[in-house]
Computed example of a mutant assay.
Amino acid sequence: MAALDTVFHDLHRQGLLMLANVGDAGGARLVERLGSKAVATSSAAMAWNHGYQDGNKLPLELLRSTIASMTRVLSVPLTVDIEGGYSDDPAQVANVIDAVIAAGAVGVNIEDGVGSPDLLIRKVDAARKVAERHGVNLFVNVRCDVYLKNLLPAEQRLEELLKRAAQYANAGADGLFAAGVVEPHEIAAVCRESRLPVNLLWRAGLAAPDELQRLGVRRLSAGSAIAEFLYGAMGGLARSFLEHGHLDTQALKAHTYGELNSLMAPRAE
Rank of each mutant, 00 (worst) to 15 (best):
A2L: 15
T6M: 13
T6F: 14
D10M: 15
G23R: 03
R29D: 05
L30C: 05
V31S: 10
K37D: 10
A44N: 00
A45W: 04
M46E: 02
G51T: 06
P59D: 07
L62S: 02
R64V: 07
A68Q: 10
S69F: 05
V73L: 01
S75Y: 12
V76F: 09
L78R: 10
T79K: 09
G85K: 00
A91V: 06
V96E: 04
A99S: 08
A102V: 01
G107T: 14
V114F: 02
V114R: 04
S116F: 14
R122D: 04
R122N: 02
D125W: 13
R128E: 14
N137M: 08
R143E: 13
K149W: 04
L152F: 12
A154F: 08
E155T: 03
E160C: 03
L161H: 13
K163N: 11
Y168V: 15
D174L: 15
D174A: 14
D174Y: 11
L176I: 07
A178L: 09
E186T: 15
R192E: 13
R192I: 13
P197C: 14
R203W: 10
R203F: 15
A207E: 05
E211M: 11
R214D: 01
G216T: 10
R219Q: 07
A227M: 08
A233G: 09
M234H: 12
S240V: 14
F241G: 06
D248Q: 08
A254G: 09
T256K: 11
Y257A: 01
Y257P: 00
R267P: 07
E269D: 06
